[in-house]
Amino acid sequence: MHLVECPRDAMQGLPHFVPTDLKIRYLNVLLRVGFHTLDFGSFVSPRAIPQMADTADVLAGLDLTTTRTHLLAIVANLRGAAEALTHDQIRYIGFPLSVSETFQQRNTNRSIEQALTDVAEMQRMADQAQKQLVVYLSMGFGNPYGDPYSPERVGLFTQKLVDLGVGIIAPSDTVGTSTPAAIESLFRHLLAQFPGVEFGAHLHTRPGEAGPKVDACRRAGVARIDGALRGFGGCPMAADDLTGNLPTEEIIPLVGSDGLDMAALDEALRLSNAVFGPVTH
């Protein structure tokens, strides 16, 4: 299972701006750990996500000379995708496509129909640049708005993405409502229906709930799983109270540490105190 570390998600909702030089220090330590992928930043409107306004400057400061880790940047529209794809260091661009119409509007100011048109163009752009598009199916385990939801609806969205040529799809529990049973059921359904897709899991969770959710992903055969050190993060566009990411330090014992530099992981955990402050949840 590929382990994806998400400092971008961890930082994006912080009330204080993390200085660029501190971001660079933190990300460079994470690069030494040896995760498969680092979700390091986003090319989005600084008005919407001010914390990520310095993503290009952060990228310029990263030491990629010895790491095996691939970089992923989140984009919210075609302009952001075009900017991200100009950087040779970035292998993946990630786009949040919601199965909830309300959240699609909140998150990207687009309808689902408009967002799918954007995905088609992003896939074309990524292919041309020899990069890979990762589509996150936001609200992939339900939503708080009363919008329609079912695993079958997630399957319909997946089929649309497959038809567009998207090869990596990550159902996302944007507000932490999933259960281990729902996680395993959804991924077993999707993996049986779409064996050629590389499925990832981007789950948000409350303290103490991570282990059973990770185990559910493993049992179902998920290929990629996202986490963030100490469980920081959450989507500021989804709700006022952020629900954090799966804590990476709780994922590793369950999926294995082969190839990871555990000393660098310990260093990153220590440095995270300067980035995020003390754990408050």
Rank of each mutant, 00 (worst) to 15 (best):
Val4Ser: 05
Cys6Asp: 09
Cys6Gly: 01
Arg8Leu: 05
Asp9Phe: 08
Gln12Asn: 07
Gly13Tyr: 09
Thr20Pro: 00
Leu22Tyr: 08
Leu31Phe: 08
Leu31Thr: 01
His36Phe: 12
Phe40Asn: 08
Gly41Ala: 15
Ser42Gly: 15
Phe43His: 03
Arg47Ala: 14
Arg47Thr: 14
Arg47Glu: 14
Pro50His: 10
Gln51Thr: 08
Asp54Arg: 03
Ala60Ser: 15
Leu62Tyr: 07
Thr65Lys: 15
Thr65Phe: 00
Thr65His: 13
His70Leu: 14
Leu72Glu: 11
Leu72Val: 12
Val75Ser: 00
Arg79Glu: 15
Glu83Val: 13
Asp88Thr: 14
Asp88Gln: 15
Asp88Lys: 14
Ile90Asp: 00
Tyr92Trp: 13
Phe95Arg: 00
Leu97Gly: 02
Glu101Leu: 07
Gln104Val: 10
Gln105Ile: 14
Gln105Asp: 13
Gln105Val: 15
Arg106Phe: 11
Asn107Ile: 07
Thr108Lys: 05
Asn109Trp: 11
Asn109Phe: 13
Ile112Gly: 05
Leu116Trp: 08
Leu116His: 09
Thr117Lys: 13
Met122Val: 06
Met125Cys: 00
Met125Arg: 07
Gln128Trp: 05
Gln128Met: 11
Ala129Leu: 09
Gln130His: 13
Gln130Asp: 12
Gln132Lys: 11
Leu133Cys: 02
Val134Ile: 15
Leu137Phe: 09
Leu137Gly: 05
Leu137Arg: 02
Leu137Val: 06
Leu137His: 06
Met139Val: 02
Met139Glu: 11
Gly142Trp: 03
Asn143Phe: 01
Asp147Arg: 11
Pro148Met: 09
Arg153Cys: 00
Val154Arg: 06
Gln159Ala: 14
Leu161Ala: 05
Val162Ile: 11
Asp163Asn: 13
Leu164Cys: 00
Gly165Asp: 01
Val166Trp: 05
Ile168Cys: 03
Ile169Phe: 07
Ala170Glu: 10
Pro171Glu: 06
Ser172Cys: 15
Asp173Val: 04
Thr174Trp: 03
Thr174Asp: 06
Thr174Pro: 03
Gly176Glu: 03
Thr177Val: 15
Thr177His: 09
Ser178Asn: 08
Thr179Asp: 10
Ala182Tyr: 02
Ala182Gly: 11
Ile183Lys: 02
Ser185Tyr: 10
Leu186Lys: 06
Leu191Thr: 04
Ala192Gly: 15
Pro195Trp: 10
Glu198Trp: 05
Gly200Leu: 06
Ala201His: 04
Leu203Thr: 02
His204Cys: 02
Pro207Lys: 10
Gly208Lys: 10
Ala210Asn: 03
Lys213Asn: 13
Val214His: 02
Val222Trp: 01
Val222Ser: 03
Val222Gly: 03
Ala223His: 15
Arg224Asn: 12
Ile225Met: 11
Asp226Tyr: 12
Asp226Arg: 00
Phe232Ile: 13
Phe232Thr: 10
Gly233Leu: 03
Gly233Tyr: 05
Pro236Met: 09
Ala238Asp: 02
Ala239Phe: 09
Ala239Arg: 14
Thr243Trp: 05
Gly244Trp: 04
Glu249Gly: 06
Glu249His: 08
Ile251Pro: 07
Ile252Ser: 07
Ile252Trp: 06
Pro253Gln: 11
Leu254Cys: 01
Asp258Met: 06
Gly259Leu: 04
Leu260His: 04
Ala263Trp: 00
Asp266Ile: 00
Ala268Tyr: 03
Leu269Ile: 14
Ser272Met: 07
Val275His: 02
Val279Phe: 12
Thr280Leu: 13
His281Gln: 14
